[in-house]
């Protein structure tokens, strides 16, 4: 499958999905853990949880309400961050569904955020077939 798609196209797809995800996170008013844009990961985005809110409570809400597993904050990030995976067998609509689940989950779990992150991703993805 990698050979059919070509590695360059696979790398470009991950870069594009990562960019859409970061735009959504910023639009929600949340913080991306990675501090240097030159080092952003194209396979996952770790999101810092606003102070006073537990990332695992949010993840549990997303799992029970929307049947979606998000990455746990590991070791010293436990409860303080969650990770959105955008790696592997993924297309635009899977990513949009993922971001919609995150946005609804933020609401369900009572995590303060601005609405519209998913819309940011829709706008980016529909306006950019490739980076």
């Amino acid at each position: 499958m990698l050979r059919e798609q070509g590695l360059a196209a696979v790398f470009a797809r991950h870069a594009r999905h990562a960019e859409a995800t970061r735009r959504a996170v910023r639009a929600w008013g949340l913080e991306i853990l990675c501090a240097d844009p030159a080092e952003y990961s194209n396979v996952l985005t770790a999101v810092v949880m606003p102070a006073g809110h537990d990332a695992d409570t949010f993840r549990a809400a997303v799992l029970s309400r929307f049947d979606m597993s998000l990455g746990v904050g590991l070791a010293k990030l436990a409860g303080k961050a969650f990770r959105i995976g955008h790696v592997g067998d993924l297309n635009d609509l899977t990513l949009v569904g993922t971001l919609a689940g995150v946005e609804m989950g933020l609401t369900v779990a009572g995590v303060p955020h601005r609405p519209g992150g998913t819309q940011e991703a829709l706008t980016f993805l529909s306006g950019n077939s490739q980076l």
């Binding site: 049947d67 979606m68 597993s69 959105i84 067998d89 993924l90």
Partner: peptide
């Protein structure tokens, strides 16, 4: 559950 589970952790990833 109905529909597909969304496995959006950074791996193991969805297997096609």
């Amino acid at each position: 559950r109905s529909g597909r589970h969304f496995l959006q952790i950074p791996g193991p990833t969805n297997v096609p």
